[in-house]
Nucleic acid binder design. Sequence first.
DNA 1: CATGAATGAGTTTTCATTCAT
DNA 2: CATGAATGAAAACTCATTCAT
Lengths: 240, 240, 240, 240
Amino acid sequence: MRKPGSNGAQTLRNLRIAAIQLLSEHGYQAMNLRMLAGKVGVQAGSLYNYIESKQQLLFWLLQETTQKLLVEFDLTLNAIDDPEERLRQFVAFHLRYHIANRKQSSVLQTEMRSLTAKNYHAIAKLQRLYTDKVRGIIEHGARVGRFHVEDAEIATFAFLQMLTAIIRWYRPQGRLSLNQLVEIYTDLTFGMLRADDGAGTRRVALSEAPPRRRLRAITPAARRLPPADSDNDADLIAES
Amino acid sequence: MRKPGSNGAQTLRNLRIAAIQLLSEHGYQAMNLRMLAGKVGVQAGSLYNYIESKQQLLFWLLQETTQKLLVEFDLTLNAIDDPEERLRQFVAFHLRYHIANRKQSSVLQTEMRSLTAKNYHAIAKLQRLYTDKVRGIIEHGARVGRFHVEDAEIATFAFLQMLTAIIRWYRPQGRLSLNQLVEIYTDLTFGMLRADDGAGTRRVALSEAPPRRRLRAITPAARRLPPADSDNDADLIAES
Amino acid sequence: MRKPGSNGAQTLRNLRIAAIQLLSEHGYQAMNLRMLAGKVGVQAGSLYNYIESKQQLLFWLLQETTQKLLVEFDLTLNAIDDPEERLRQFVAFHLRYHIANRKQSSVLQTEMRSLTAKNYHAIAKLQRLYTDKVRGIIEHGARVGRFHVEDAEIATFAFLQMLTAIIRWYRPQGRLSLNQLVEIYTDLTFGMLRADDGAGTRRVALSEAPPRRRLRAITPAARRLPPADSDNDADLIAES
Amino acid sequence: MRKPGSNGAQTLRNLRIAAIQLLSEHGYQAMNLRMLAGKVGVQAGSLYNYIESKQQLLFWLLQETTQKLLVEFDLTLNAIDDPEERLRQFVAFHLRYHIANRKQSSVLQTEMRSLTAKNYHAIAKLQRLYTDKVRGIIEHGARVGRFHVEDAEIATFAFLQMLTAIIRWYRPQGRLSLNQLVEIYTDLTFGMLRADDGAGTRRVALSEAPPRRRLRAITPAARRLPPADSDNDADLIAES
DNA sequence: CATGAATGAGTTTTCATTCAT
DNA sequence: CATGAATGAAAACTCATTCAT
């Protein structure tokens, strides 16, 4: 039976949004298709007009999320050469992207374990591409003497995990604006990688209070980010 | 009927070890009690001689894990006053503890979402105690001018998440020794918090290659840690 | 919306052919209407322009198949009076018909169980007509002393089931031609019914090797059969 | 929960009997596990204490049935050398076995199509062994000049299918006793294979009414058959 | 204590069928 | 006529939990 006003494309969009919402909230195993169907506004069986299986739904979402991240990275950073500037822009990009797509990113972090082996490896491979790009930033800066790390690979892991963990606690309505957050993390990561933060020579002696650098104005990268994505997200399910 | 040689206390220990192993490998939802029973060497029904429910088992394990972490923190750090030394010892402690108790820590990080609301809040409250202790280290250092952070709360989150994420990738058999790992992370975090790392004044001018500090010898904290805990862990199930 | 070039009558023919194909391959329960629709080249919902229900489709096909068999029997055998000749022609007819309509016959044999009780009885009644005709051949031959069986009814069952089972193994591309097959079965059934096979007195003493009868030339019945029916059958679905 | 008086071994037996009953009546696809569970007297989920899956249940039953048939064949026929006697005993054995195990045999004939490819081939291989034994009987008799067939392979198929089809219509409560049935089929098959039926020279001239042979007394093979198997079978489910 | 047999509610998935467009 | 979106009932199977033995 066709419900009056039903529309496949819209239902598919609603399905995607509802799935991300539920996966981020409950996890793959705890989300059942009845919940999902309820949120989408159809019967559970109707979901199979759009997905092949629950597993394939998860795979699809994770793949899409990872691919989009890769594309956005390139759009944002490919044109920048200067190591510090690349680092600065990357920190801003990564934070803003993850906050704008908080639920998707959260699902990506926590639900990979629920993929079948084959699907897992496919996503892991995509994610490696991203990690490699980030390591490239750090290694390049280290090679030309602008960052100073003992082990670039480990620094990459530590750095990336620190940034990505942002979605565990940051809430846009909290006391910190997104710009402030970016500034603080830029400071932390520049220190971590012993990078010049653009405020010139710093801390002649550690025993005296160092002049805190002036925080730079909001980065241009911020403006290039696409509009906050579809997952932060009350009432996103369209009426049909 | 009772199996000859069965022993309640030993079975309980085996149950705990097997549960942590399975929870870290599969997650709460994907672990079923038949798997657990199989690993323990009893029938599923017999587990109920030791636990009230699957949920209560998870709660018990997470509570125990968190409490032990708190106790170890105090044993390791209460006697130290100097801010840099407290930071240094904390980094070493936290890394070593999480690596030694990798599976337990992993369960703690990933399975809290499977707790009922009431249980969740109980564990979250315990975890807050730990975070507060760590924030105390950073705030104290900042207050007395030894660390320089823009926002101590955020620095605490970033710092702690970076350290804790270690269990996502570090493997003791890998190319890095635990001591090396601790040194690298000490360097990263001291930079992040603009702390003196004990190598004197650093980087007078960022344009010249900075003298990398000499890595300090293995910290005493390492020796105080209890023997590697029960979760990394072949053949841990005792015969009964 | 109507596909250009679509044609109800042709679609109905395609539907019938596809249904027989799928029913013979998978059985009624395992064939689903999406498979059928796919083979016909329409959406599942469109099938309901041609059928009332899946059950009624099965009934329709079985009824048609049985009725056609009855008609062909009459066309082939009504004009023949001599008992041996009737038997001979019947064997040829039944084998050729079942081989030419292998899939339909197979569906008839195996899918009656999937009919509702009412539909089942309707088909069974038709089939009884056929069995009665065959029993007529045997009983008549026995009455006039040309066949010798202990129990005509049982002989009919045994005889008919033996012939019908041909579709379980005979493949036209195999080592036996259809003519050879008919000859062999004629021999077997004539022996079974102790009928004279047209080679005169046979086997005076069983201890000597009997002169095998000369196989008769291809029977006229073969030529009267309609062209091989629609079910053995690649590319039968017409373009529309 | 354990129901008072429940007993695994008895439940397994009941399950087997109920499954054969339902499979023969409805077929694999149309039998659902609720029906089966209902007949066994447990909840559907409880069946999985005894089976791995519905498919594996079918496989198990078919395998068991085929193996038992092979064993009984050997027990009944291995000691007999004379071709006519082997044939006679085989006819009696095959009919009696199939009637005694009517439902099992029926399931074997009709439900092989519901096996997965792998399972199908395993059973088909076992069944080939049986067919080969039967062909051996016919080929041997033909080689030594006691049977006269044009093509032993085809004769085997026709012969075996005719006998096996008995379960489609014979009912022990009907007008024919089992002994009578065996006699009739012995006569039919001896004729079919042009075998001496033990009544000496037969039918000197086909034009005169042949002296019908005297039916032999019930064969000893009948007595060797195990007691009628568990499938013909009202009220076979034991109370527990 | 431990087993093994069972429950019963839940899960994903399938599918004939309907009907607005 | 045909499509595509949906229903809703049923299927196989899972699993935490219970309890007589």
